[in-house]
Design a binder for these strands. Structure first.
Lengths: 339, 339
DNA sequence: ATTGGCACTCCGCTCGGTAGAGTGCCAGGC
DNA sequence: GCCTGGCACTCTACCGAGCGGAGTGCCAAT
């Protein structure tokens, strides 16, 4: 069905359309790419491509534009990730290196991605699922009020207040703090529930309710923080979306305001596998039917700790975007590993 | 110059224009408001108002729309803040009450404001300037690596890593922790530099560089955190901005991405004084020349700890917006005070 | 000071005509 | 059998003219 030249034609259509944002016709194609055949031949190829659903005409007697299916084929078989230029890499590196803390790293990353891709950038904070505990701190705020602080190896700090059923003295608090840390420091989060299970038994019966209260708060914190925060940047780039604004941009903005949607968007991206979800493939929200998402995991070590990506019109420069996303993810991973 | 009726006419123009988004003419005015005079009279009044710069015509033979100056007069003299309805109040209260922590309060607030006003909401995290120190914690991460944690009375936790010039043993750490807390707990941030100034003198000469390192990190944290984080919501409401989209919305989105701009936007709002900045009065960013800002401070006690507000088109329902902003600020203050 | 009347202006809409781009198809050529 | 040039057809986007309507400004009358 699709011989070599037809694929070449599809590639050319995608490239031209992405560049010009206008439907591309047979004549323009042969002019801009040396395909070695005449417009009439291209027309036949285009007719085939249209039958197969890879391209479509907005109106009769207009040029063709790629369909989601067309972009999919393009991404899967016709395009390769475009590596960034050396100056670009250097710029990324130095921009990220100046970050002072985790928040700053994330903020800078989102800006960087938005600038580089000229699209909306999404960055998830390093997830705690893969993280390990660096320290747990307990502070007394009153006779039966405590503050629990959890510090992770990615530099995140979470804190919770809690009320204990009975009064908790400094001695008990110190003991608990020591035992708790002995049990969980250096351990991955998912191990923690198992590790603290028997901890109350080490204390006198009277104290166990208090200990239990602390532990349950700790576990709660772990669970809650597994769902991670996500930040956005470059929303102004949405204005370069299309010609028919309000209708296009509105649902996108709405969708992007919901954390749940953003989480789903980043979806199954992993560190090794970059995902590209195109148009209707995107089930996260109806508002995103005409957008594509490019996402990948990033990590401080060998495992992905979180994800980042961009959202843009289906008509986007996939090779370039994929290159930028991948490069940024790598550098962020490096920066995190160093700190 | 401006007798009672002319003011009434201006008020009517503002109200109608805000409602319909279309230039309002003399006939429509007398139809919709019982002014007791004829269109011709109104025309004369409108001519005066135009001469004085309160209203303008988009084109000859079109109706009039208020100018920034007109809105200013309207806000200052012709409108009063519209209180929310009881059900609305109840909804706000219950929505905010379910928040589990500070982050959640802020997130919910921004959503609430955006929904209520149908505009872009801006909420600043409770500022640390007015805050007091609840606790400072020091943890050892290695022989000469420490983690410093600062906990504020608004429930915020900030953390920093630092390297000390020499090794710091547990004994010294405990001592420093105790003295530091004794000096600063319960004190407002701005007092801290003075309070810790002489602290190194309490330690042996050999330890002072280490102590100094810790202190300078603490002060740095305080200063940095004085510039507060700000979050946005309801950007999708920008799409209801005007008819000529791309040009209008783009600069606004750009402006709103910069924290600095947002900070300046909230400007000199204080808890008592709500500010309304209209159109060109807004010096924060050129992109915001056709937007207005309504902002007010909110606080957990008697002093404002941070600010919140909304950004919308100059053509906005000022009384309603002001009412919503004020009400939300009050409730947030209450919630913070309770927790 | 207010009013009704009137002439005038200008916007926004619709309509018809046209130029241009692009297509599909067909018949002829390699 | 695939490619090509030619041709008729379609549809859009653009332009200009014409028209209706809304709104104004001015004036003379009350």
């Amino acid at each position: 069905m699709l011989d070599e030249r037809k694929l070449e034609v599809l590639r050319a259509i995608v490239q031209d359309y992405v560049g010009t944002e206008e439907p591309v016709g047979s004549k323009a194609l042969v002019d801009r790419h040396n395909l070695g055949v005449s417009p009439a031949t291209i027309r036949n190829d285009m007719a085939t491509l249209e039958e197969e659903g890879y391209i479509a005409q907005p109106h009769t007697s207009a040029g063709r534009i790629p369909t989601d299916k067309g972009y999919r084929l393009f991404v899967d078989r016709l395009a390769s990730v475009k590596p960034l230029s050396t100056p670009e890499r250097r710029a990324i590196r130095s921009f990220l290196e100046n970050a002072v803390d985790l928040d700053d790293v994330v903020t800078r990353t989102v800006r960087l991605l938005a600038q580089l891709t000229r699209q909306v950038a999404i960055v998830q904070y390093p997830s705690l699922t893969r993280s390990t505990v660096r320290h747990v701190e307990l502070l007394s705020l009153g006779p039966s009020r405590l503050m629990l602080i959890l510090i992770t190896d990615t530099g995140r700090v979470e804190q919770r207040h809690l009320a204990t059923p009975g009064e908790v003295g400094e001695a008990l608090l110190g003991d608990l703090r020591a035992r708790l840390n002995a049990a969980v420091v250096g351990q991955p989060f998912k191990e923690v529930p198992r590790l603290v299970e028997e901890l109350p038994l080490a204390f006198e019966e009277a104290e166990r309710p208090n200990v239990a209260a602390v532990l349950s708060t700790l576990l709660e914190t772990l669970v809650e923080q597994t769902e991670e925060r996500i930040i956005l940047g470059g929303t102004a780039n949405l204005t370069r979306f299309g010609h028919d604004f309000p209708l296009t941009i509105r649902p996108v903005l709405e969708a992007l305001e919901e954390q749940v949607v953003l989480l789903r968007l980043l979806g199954e991206a992993s560190e090794s596998g970059m995902i590209v979800r195109i148009g209707h493939e995107n089930k996260a929200h109806e508002g995103l039917a005409s957008t594509s998402v490019v996402a990948v995991g990033y990590g401080s070590g060998d495992e992905a700790v979180a994800k980042l990506g961009v959202v843009g019109p289906t008509r986007m420069d996939y090779p370039g975007t994929m290159g930028a996303v991948r490069a940024v993810a790598r550098y962020v991973g490096q920066i995190l590993a160093e700190s």
